[in-house]
């Protein structure tokens, strides 16, 4: 596979807004890798999450658009009601397939597609959340040689999601990072690996 830099995929639910803001808020606009994620939190009505996140974030935050190629410096969120999958050419696909883990969008389909399409170029980030979505997908990414960055459960508003990932991802493929350290960790990785 041609090396075109990594792609960061992430997932969160309860406590996810603060976690996303803290983890990605300080990354610079020229951050080399795209960041793509699922956050379960959406009530009824207009979807405000991209706007909420864009405030206090230097990355360009947007809803994922069908067939759009991922770009560094952008943060993409799966729109409500659609699963988000990644293709080998690093474009987005949206589907209305059945809910997974009771949710659509769900984290597992995103992670699994990243594992299958991008292999060890994927980095999974598992943030605060009150369910086990994402664990299976993180396992699959790890199995392809990708790295899993797991929010230290002790720093998570809801610890079930990071704990579930911790339980299945082999130690060699994961790092457990305190919430406020995730940003600096990703930043360093981006600079070192890409430089």
């Amino acid at each position: 596979m041609k090396r075109r830099g990594r792609v960061i995929v992430f997932g969160c639910s309860t406590g996810g807004v603060r976690a996303m803001q803290t983890a990605f808020g300080l990354l610079p606009v020229d951050y080399p890798w795209p960041i793509v994620g699922v956050c379960h939190l959406h009530a009824q009505g207009r979807w405000l999450m991209p706007e909420v996140l864009a405030r206090g974030c230097q990355l360009k935050v947007q809803g994922a658009v069908e067939k759009e190629r991922l770009q560094g410096g952008h943060l993409y969120l799966a729109p409500p009601g659609y699963h988000l999958l990644l293709e080998r050419d690093r474009s987005c696909s949206l589907t209305v397939d059945e809910k997974v883990n009771g949710s659509r969008p769900a984290i597992d389909p995103l992670f699994e597609s990243a594992a299958d399409s991008l292999g060890d170029q994927s980095i999974a980030v598992i943030l605060s959340g009150a369910n086990r979505d994402g664990a299976e997908g993180a396992y699959r990414i790890a199995a392809q040689g990708g790295l899993c960055v797991i929010q230290d459960p002790n720093t998570a508003e809801a610890e079930e999601m990071p704990r579930a990932a911790l339980a299945v991802v082999p130690a060699a493929q994961r790092v457990v990072v305190r919430l406020e350290e995730i940003g600096p960790f990703l930043q360093t990785m981006g600079v070192v690996t890409n430089g």
Binding site: L85, E87, D116
Partner: peptide, 9 residues
Amino acid sequence: YGRASLRRR
């Protein structure tokens, strides 16, 4: 058909 979705199915 979109590949990632087809793969899942």
